[in-house]
Write a protein that binds this DNA or RNA. Sequence first.
DNA 1: TGACGTCATAAGCTGGCTTTATGAGCAGGG
DNA 2: CCCTGCTCATAAAGCCAGCTTATGACGTCA
Lengths: 334, 334
Amino acid sequence: MSRETRGPRAADGGQGAHGRRGAREAQAEHGGEPRGHLSHRVPDLGALELLLAVARHGSLGAAAREVGITQPAASSRIRSMERQLGVALVDRSPRGSRLTDAGALVTDWARRIVEAAEAFDVGAQALRGRRDSRLRVAASMTIAEYLLPGWLIALRAQRPDTAVSLQAGNSAAVAERLFAGDADVGFVEGLAVPDGLDGVVVAHDRLVLVVAPSHPWARRRGPLDPAELAATPLVLRERGSGTRQVLDAALSGHGGLAQPLLELASTTAVKAAAVSGAGPAVLSELAITEELASRRLVAIPVDGVLLRRDLRAVWPAGHRPTGPARDLLSLTRS
Amino acid sequence: MSRETRGPRAADGGQGAHGRRGAREAQAEHGGEPRGHLSHRVPDLGALELLLAVARHGSLGAAAREVGITQPAASSRIRSMERQLGVALVDRSPRGSRLTDAGALVTDWARRIVEAAEAFDVGAQALRGRRDSRLRVAASMTIAEYLLPGWLIALRAQRPDTAVSLQAGNSAAVAERLFAGDADVGFVEGLAVPDGLDGVVVAHDRLVLVVAPSHPWARRRGPLDPAELAATPLVLRERGSGTRQVLDAALSGHGGLAQPLLELASTTAVKAAAVSGAGPAVLSELAITEELASRRLVAIPVDGVLLRRDLRAVWPAGHRPTGPARDLLSLTRS
DNA sequence: TGACGTCATAAGCTGGCTTTATGAGCAGGG
DNA sequence: CCCTGCTCATAAAGCCAGCTTATGACGTCA
């Protein structure tokens, strides 16, 4: 089956013996595993896109056409990807190419990388904030980080030529932009709509108590008592952050928050501290799906506390969004 | 200024015109922003890793050291990333470099790409299946695709030198490998444990009815009636797949499944069909989190049907796993 | 059998990223 | 006060991956 063996080891591309190696002593490619960084073991985005195209078309040539390269380039690139991974990805035949079983698995993993890259792309483009943007969005950090890219991808699918710009900031900054006419629609998280704005709830965000798997709480059977949570020093965002406000309010009836174990400036820093075992933290469920899935963090249920906040689209009171902003809003309502 | 990065094609002016026109006239039929594929607009993995390192260290030089390049290379690479994105990412000062606000956002999006790449990496390494593996895992497709990479990342964090190999297949194949001694532990999805195996439930998987946002059901208020679901032609996996078995069983009391609208060979194909509006589909929640978040698919609740299946770790009856396999198991139990 | 499809091979070019070598700016200690 | 040590920026030269064009080999179908 498949001519797999027919060609000599392919495009070893006349690289050869240019002796001199720079001062990069670290990684030798000899023998066993490449011990370098991710970027040495994972094919680049272009190769992954090509692989997805091959999966779609069942043909190297057609895939090459889709991504705008020639057939030999595609052939060589897939082959070097197979060499790099040490796995046969496609079964070549004179009638086309189909993914092997392993190739299907690899392709699905690749798809997740490419999807993350799409979110990055659409977000970065919005961040560039060109002046000709048809839709100017102001959003809180959490929303800009976790939800907006998905919305923008969906928006692009529906209205491909809507240029979007994004400004991220806290609730006050969002309100300011809206009042100044610098943004067409805003997104904020928190307990109430800022004065002078109207809004609708577009999503909910649960706050979750998490600890590293090594923490004793990770082996608890039952849920935690709110008073116990309130009495425990936590890793927290600085005072004034949305997350901390909600937590404060929720625990006010149980003695209030204990003195923080650590106060950090960003969600990411808090997450990193929690993962590394510094202590329990309370974070948005949006921020920790990955960590929960890979067991770097463990969620601890807490009884009888509503750690939940609303995520709202907002606009200056009375000026309901129209045009592209309305299109975006209609995407965000579940 | 940087002369206009050469467009995807464009550079043809230089030498193109030989008699035969090259295949590069391949113009994208994709609507929307046509120019350039993802890989031209998104920095490569190495650059993203570097950016994360800068975020961690607050210094270009230290970040360079971490990823194994020199400081000038890091400086240049960050700079070209900023040019590519059109956004200032770091504030440089004689005392170090800190992310700008936009840089923090970009870095968080970058982190998601890198995390997906880590999952790809650990999965691909396992797939390579070297003979010296200390832990040989056999798993069903769904588990191998969505859950195993996360588990393996966690395992690597705890036991860095555990070489893992992975064989993916259906339940029967998993059982076979276990009996033959080709695998140390298996993971299967389905209603029951195969004969001759013991196992524990490690997770649950809900099946979800989804439609494209354009489908009339997407605008329903209430949940769907099971009989209505049963009577509707669906996009399905081929007969015999785990998903379809569960669906069949769940709807047997409501008239049984209608004639399929489409029968496709992979979860991915079903998902793609559903996204493109071919019709309603029932898929594992694991497979559609991304699509739900970005509104490419909408979940429709169904009343009174238990579309749920167990995901189990399994091993030959009586031979409870030990060693690395036991370490893995302890990670998978929530 | 010949036309068309597939993929593989070969050779040459280009450009991005790298390296080494240097310079400039700011901080803190002797 | 200036030297030492950190930071980042610039410049010149070289490697290498990947691209292209040109061709060949193989299989299928009318």
